[in-house]
Design a protein around this nucleic acid. Structure first.
Lengths: 190, 190
DNA sequence: CAATATACGGAGGCATCCTCCGTTTTCAAG
DNA sequence: CTTGAAAACGGAGGATGCCTCCGTATATTG
């Protein structure tokens, strides 16, 4: 509608936002979804009030932090649609997720939180894109008749994060997660 | 070694322990694994110190609360070993878990916490029993050649709780969880 | 250089965690 | 029944985290 002429966003605000994202990436990456937001603010060197002004809820902060990661996953999924074998494409995509996640265990809870939260509410463009990309992967498999009906992108993603999250961290983490995921993928066959 | 003769455990201590377990069942059932322990003590009508004396860590409290639930699951698993179709037996056992869990959503995180925690450390008799029972289910399927190699009882249980936990609560919860689990079970086929 | 919209910081109120220790209760020996 | 020590109790208290509120500071614009 009538777009009101607005002032240019203040430089310091933008800088602080950046500092907060940086700090959050660090702190949340280590401490997981329950990490202290006070700590994030401290690390960023801003007041706690500033944090809450930029990101009124924990979720919004997560969301912002993960935008880039999500982008990467979208690109990966879109590339994989080209592949001939849809089931293997899905397997590859899941493996890519595991790789991405392996270095950021702490973010896992947050990831699944983001995925479910905003898929549920459906108002975030980025996650729609991700879901769409994954859905295309699934669709291709379904159309060939290689993948069973009744499995949504949400199902796939939630299961992925659930499995990653439930597994105890440790030297065998990656191996175990991949093993379980493979079973699940096999179950997707028609 | 030389078992020292000890005093009979005090009556009040035992009573308080019971009160605490009762309260914990209630509070944790609602509030989940992050529920306030202060609240548990309040509800039990004992001092917070008393709670911490009986259950020095959150995990130990969970553990105690879930003993009975675990017992029930053990019995169920043992019954199912008799069944002819191992894959369906496993499916049934998983469904039984879902049913048990459905009325106590809040306990989910705690459940998986217990399972992983003490399976990892392997010092709890009860969870060994549970794992053994589930393993027997799997073994039977493996021996018939119906179930693939390389899947442990831990795998099964952790995946179960992971899936239950990741799914958003809601009217479709049960349906969705069962759907995903079925895919996983199908993946277990050889 | 104002004027003002915008952003900042952090104190403060409340909740939770967990420890520590002075007080109370129970048990059992005499 | 006493009585004293072992066992258990309760909750204050210090630490940390959450989030709100508002007085202060500063960037932008005319």
């Amino acid at each position: 509608m009538a777009e009101v002429r607005k002032r240019k966003p203040r430089a310091d605000a933008q800088k602080n936002r950046e500092l907060l994202l940086e700090a959050a990436k660090e702190i949340l990456g280590r401490g997981g979804p329950n990490a202290s937001l006070d700590a994030v603010a401290r690390r960023a060197g801003v007041g706690i009030g500033t944090l809450y002004r930029h990101f009124p809820t924990r979720e919004e902060l997560f969301m912002a932090v993960f935008s880039r990661e999500l982008d990467q996953l979208i690109v990966t999924a879109e590339d994989l649609v080209e592949r001939d074998d849809p089931l293997e494409a899905i397997r590859s995509w899941l493996h890519a997720n595991v790789d991405l996640v392996e270095t950021k265990r702490g973010m896992l809870g947050a990831m699944s939180l983001v995925v479910t939260e905003d898929l549920k509410q459906g108002y975030t463009e980025r996650s729609s894109l991700l879901r769409a990309a994954v859905d295309r992967l699934l669709d291709k498999g379904r159309s060939i008749g290689e993948i069973r009906e009744g499995v949504s992108a949400e199902d796939l993603m939630q299961t992925l994060y659930a499995i990653c999250y439930a597994r105890q961290p440790g030297p065998d983490w990656r191996e175990n997660v991949l093993r379980i995921l493979d079973i699940f993928v096999d179950g997707l066959k028609k």
